[in-house]
Design a protein around this nucleic acid. Sequence first.
DNA 1: ACAAATGTATTGTCCGACAATCCTAATATG
DNA 2: CATATTAGGATTGTCGGACAATACATTTGT
Lengths: 242, 242
Amino acid sequence: MTHKFKTLDRAPVYVKVCNAIEEDILSGVLKEGALLPTEAELCAQFGVTRSSVREGIRLLQQSGLVERGAAKRLVVKSPNASEIAEVASRSMALGGATFGEVFETLAMLYPEAARIAAGRLSDEALGALCDVRDGLRDAAPDAADEIVGYAVEFFQQLANGLDNRVMLAMLQSLNLMIGASLRLVIDQTPNAHERILGAQTEIIAALKKRDEAQARAWMMKHIEDLRRGYVVAKVNLDARIL
Amino acid sequence: MTHKFKTLDRAPVYVKVCNAIEEDILSGVLKEGALLPTEAELCAQFGVTRSSVREGIRLLQQSGLVERGAAKRLVVKSPNASEIAEVASRSMALGGATFGEVFETLAMLYPEAARIAAGRLSDEALGALCDVRDGLRDAAPDAADEIVGYAVEFFQQLANGLDNRVMLAMLQSLNLMIGASLRLVIDQTPNAHERILGAQTEIIAALKKRDEAQARAWMMKHIEDLRRGYVVAKVNLDARIL
DNA sequence: ACAAATGTATTGTCCGACAATCCTAATATG
DNA sequence: CATATTAGGATTGTCGGACAATACATTTGT
């Protein structure tokens, strides 16, 4: 048996630069908030030119691992749930996700989220939900945009209160995707204001009682109500979200 | 009142290049599989230099919208669930997600997934699940790696059969995050092979009967069993996944 | 007709230069 | 002395050109 050579690493330099920095971030050598060396220093350390370093940085940048901070220097950042949600929802939209798929996932997740929330929500989180509900209550019944805002915000605050970043990221990405279509629905649903307000009130009541089953049930009703709205508004569930 | 000027767009050129291309992809002018112009042509069209074009391309590239294809030319690509899941799970890992958060989300999602699967799984999807189960059955009871593989693959196939790309992306990202820790658990759990095999068998039976409640229940038991494994293996649930 | 050699288009990498911007520190002004 | 201004330096953003490396298309040789 002759000697075996390892397969050569033929990745472009800018990819290697990206990976090298990413590795040091991941392994903890570069902690959150740490300043990366300047481009010139990176050139020196890697032994490549600025062009390559810069292309590598662009790759990192888009994945949210790194950010231009004060003094324009690059700082290490750990992506938060909102950013992850944004990237994910955008990708799914581009991947051809449909209203139907998004809504079905929403209908699967949020009742469970409400159930868990009932056993966990802090007083502050409950207060935030009440604030949303109060805002909705005081909104004009025909201000569709405002109603949509409060409807989504309610979901948002519920997700926030779960104290679980993974869940939060997933629920938030759903919120982002559902937003646009909700406007359509609410625009064409009579009594939308009243019905959503009622659902929110019941859900909050159940959460306050720490009644998991009831929180779940009311959330299901709330979503089922929205689903009927989709039918009434004749939204094509097979259409891509965009 | 004096004349008001619109705020100038002061984004760097490479960002604008990225946005411009992205916009055309999103609006459908550039469809999936379409070849992008060469770098030289892009320079001419945008009126900027190759360096800037290339940096812009790197930004696009990382979000999975574009890919180097045959002839090295850039081709438009719509990201699929696996890629989205990969990006999302990586970001969450870097964002500091813990085993506990991941597992809790898993425990929230998969029982519901099983419930939905019971009403929807095609014969092929069921067949795929059976194949996994059979593979696990024939595996050696002490081959931890193999068992982990089949355990994750079972989740994977279930998610696949749901015929919902949004759910698929979310479930897949959980699978990616849970993989490593599952190995720890299975390594230290006695009868892991037997218990997982039993759970899979029961779940498949429920799915075949189209019994939603039972499918959900058995999946919950399966996951609860895994949870006990975490306790036995003394996995620190507050530790970051990495 | 198939294989080899050649040519060409395109990307990957390098270099050097300068403008634009921000930070810091010295200086002027009250 | 405190504040505003100015000057300087450091760093990023953009440009232009150059060449090597590679993949594809075409021609050539047998």
